[in-house]
Amino acid sequence: MAEDKPSWKEYPMAATIHSPGSATDQNTGDWKSMRPVRDSSKCDKCGICWIFCPDAALYMTEEGFYEVDLYHCKGCGICAHECRKEAITMVEEGE
């Protein structure tokens, strides 16, 4: 018996989820074998990487760069492929 798991009484009715966007807690970052690395000297902060990311895994820093959110980035490589300045390269995880 898994006693730490909730009883039927504890689930919300019909399993309706009341925490919008709770997927954000999920670490989809551990799916990746390659991660994007930005060369800030080449980046012109255009935002193309951001708008093409299927995982909304980039966010703007105070300096106006788009930083990769490695907790969510699945390593698809779209940002690197789409960057017109070739400012992003995909490197092996662990390197």
Binding site: T24, N27, T28, P54, A56
Partner: peptide, 13 residues
């Protein structure tokens, strides 16, 4: 973002 990060879409979905 109204469609949140952490969704279970494949890479490059």
């Amino acid at each position: 973002e109204f469609f949140a990060e952490g969704n279970r879409g494949c890479q490059g979905c």
